[in-house]
Design a protein around this nucleic acid. Structure first.
Lengths: 193, 193
DNA sequence: CGCGACGTTGATTTGCCTCAACGATTGTGG
DNA sequence: CCACAATCGTTGAGGCAAATCAACGTCGCG
């Protein structure tokens, strides 16, 4: 199957895998179609899957008591998305994850992931590397939030992820960057003006 | 040695280890004394160690072009500290890590960590779990930065880490929470007033 | 004892938010 | 396939949370 080939290629960019291992790895995933506006994670439920995007785009966000919406993560092709805290610690989710476009994902269930990790040192390494890179990425974001102004964060995002900026609605980008959509609109205006 | 026993106990709270494995694990670390105000990480150098605090307290921070100081992490007994990005990706550091008190740490070098990870599935698991928890922790902080006001972040910190709040200078806590020391002072006043 | 680091307090400023109103798209049901 | 509603981005006016600037008291340390 074509999607198996893709996730295997992806995994082999992290760890070497024999054909047998590659088969075991790929068969732990399940392909699922997700329509635009459909949710794959909702608050209060324990998240069962980690999801790898084959095609499409997603947004993870939280909504606080006052109804304020904050985007925690985006994902497009080749990225993972889930409520990380809920999935890893197997406790109730606080986030929504919604499809921004008609999408296809590969789901990896918590149980299957646990089985993979147990079954081979190589798979364990794969998930270790993933977690390390996730943590490194998040640390960068924390630093950026602490040290930069709204406009600087916007500029940096555009420079780093121009393809994502074009693909997600502006209110989602604004709330990812920790500002209102009105303010992001003004920033963009300053540039062209 | 006493410090070996401590890190072994710590590791065993994450993964089961035979006595032999425990010995191998502990011998990858090196005990070092660090005086107050001494740096264990400085910008532009590639970070060689991950550090586990036996005794004392540390602060990791960045300084931007305008000289603004932002605290990225604290560590006291039983915690790890380093410039995570620099260590994991083996690229030049952007942070300082300084001792807030006379301290003792166990250093784990990048090479020794790599050797441990390679030598046994169990050790690999240990570091995988560490990385996962680090990422989960950081995600919480990102959410907190996006959704809470300065005062709410302060209240939450006091509730979660009262012992740390008492032990670090106020300017360090303020810059960890993303506010000025003047503003933190005013917040504390509001409480007692 | 004197100096420098730290915390406090007051006055002023500002980056960003809130509220409101209005076009432009997009989506949807008849 | 059109009409109407809903969603999305923009613009303006006004407001607030938190920063900045400045001055001062205090404490720990050399």
């Amino acid at each position: 199957m074509d999607s198996s080939k893709k996730i295997i290629d992806y995994a082999r960019r992290v760890v070497p895998l024999s054909d047998e291992e590659a088969g075991e790895f790929a068969s732990a995933f399940r392909e699922v179609k997700v329509k635009k506006r459909q949710f794959i994670v909702q608050p209060n439920f324990i998240v069962k899957n980690r999801n790898w995007v084959l095609e499409g785009a997603f947004r993870a966000y939280v909504v606080d008591d006052e109804g304020k919406d904050s985007t925690i993560a985006f994902a497009i092709e080749d990225w993972w998305i889930t409520d990380y805290n809920s999935y890893i610690l197997q406790k109730p989710a606080t986030m929504f994850v919604v499809a921004l476009e008609d999408s296809r994902i590969l789901e990896l269930s918590y149980e299957n992931e646990a089985r993979l990790k147990k079954s081979s040192h190589r798979f364990e390494t794969f998930f270790r590397v993933r977690a390390e890179r996730t943590a490194a990425f998040m640390q960068q974001r924390i630093i950026s939030n602490l040290t930069q102004t709204a406009e600087e964060r916007y500029d940096q995002f555009i420079a780093q992820y121009p393809h994502i900026a074009q693909r997600v609605p502006q209110y989602a980008l604004a709330s990812y960057l920790g500002m209102t959509t009105e303010f992001l609109s003004r920033i963009r205006n300053r540039k062209t003006g």
